[in-house]
């Protein structure tokens, strides 16, 4: 299974989702990590090994691009394709949450 194939099912895993969202503006890897550490109530911890791997995966899949280097740290930013995937994923996650919330409140979709 290639890395591209791992991403091509349309869903982004939690780390990919957070990292793409953090790179709507250009940032270097360390800045992404700091930003993710500051997310309140964050359930998903993204460690350095996962961050490094995921950055490379997303670049390879064409969802991120490297736009500069600051010493050993490279600067990444989301691509148009990455933005499209992020928007889809936000909509998908929103629909999931709304469904679950309605269910918890005892309301069904058809009411």
């Amino acid at each position: 299974m290639s890395r591209r194939a791992a991403l091509s099912n349309g869903e982004l895993n939690d780390s990919q989702f957070y990292i793409l969202a953090a790179l709507v503006v250009p940032r270097h890897g360390y800045a992404v990590m700091q930003l993710l550490m500051d997310v309140p109530d964050q359930i998903t911890h993204v460690g350095p090994a996962t961050l490094y791997t995921t950055l490379h995966q997303l670049v390879e899949a064409g969802l991120l691009e490297r736009c500069a280097s600051e010493g050993v740290s490279k600067v990444y930013v989301i691509t148009q394709e990455g933005r499209r995937r992020l928007v889809n994923e936000i909509a998908r996650k929103q629909a999931m949450v709304e469904f679950a919330q309605r269910a918890m409140e005892g309301r069904t979709h058809h009411e």
Binding site: Y30, M33, A49, Y52, G71, V72, S73
Partner: peptide, 22 residues
């Protein structure tokens, strides 16, 4: 201690790890 598999990573890998305490 932790163990990771990464084939010939660049310096960014080491720098990110160090920055987070590893």
């Amino acid at each position: 201690f932790a163990l990771d598999y990464m084939y010939e990573p660049d310096e960014e890998y080491i720098a990110l790890s160090r920055a987070s305490g590893w």
